[in-house]
């Protein structure tokens, strides 16, 4: 099979045909500890800004 595994769930002309799906790199980065550690800091800072705007 030459197709990509990440795209196998899409069915032509079904309700999921018009969305986007992540490729293998995007999926890998989701659980890449070093990258996610950086995202952890960034997300926390972003959340703190929203929290401080709300109190």
């Amino acid at each position: 099979m030459a197709g990509k595994k990440e795209e196998a769930n899409i069915k032509a002309y079904s309700q999921n045909f018009t969305t986007m799906t992540p490729g293998s790199f995007a999926k890998k980065m989701r659980t890449c500890v070093i990258f996610q550690f950086i995202r952890f800091i960034v997300i926390n800072l972003k959340m703190l800004v929203v929290v401080s705007k709300s109190h």
């Binding site: 980065m29 989701r30 659980t31 890449c32 952890f40």
Partner: peptide
């Protein structure tokens, strides 16, 4: 500017 979202392990840690 203040509405965002992302999925990943970092979210789980949080």
């Amino acid at each position: 500017d203040y509405t965002f979202g992302e999925i990943g392990l970092a979210g789980h840690w949080i």
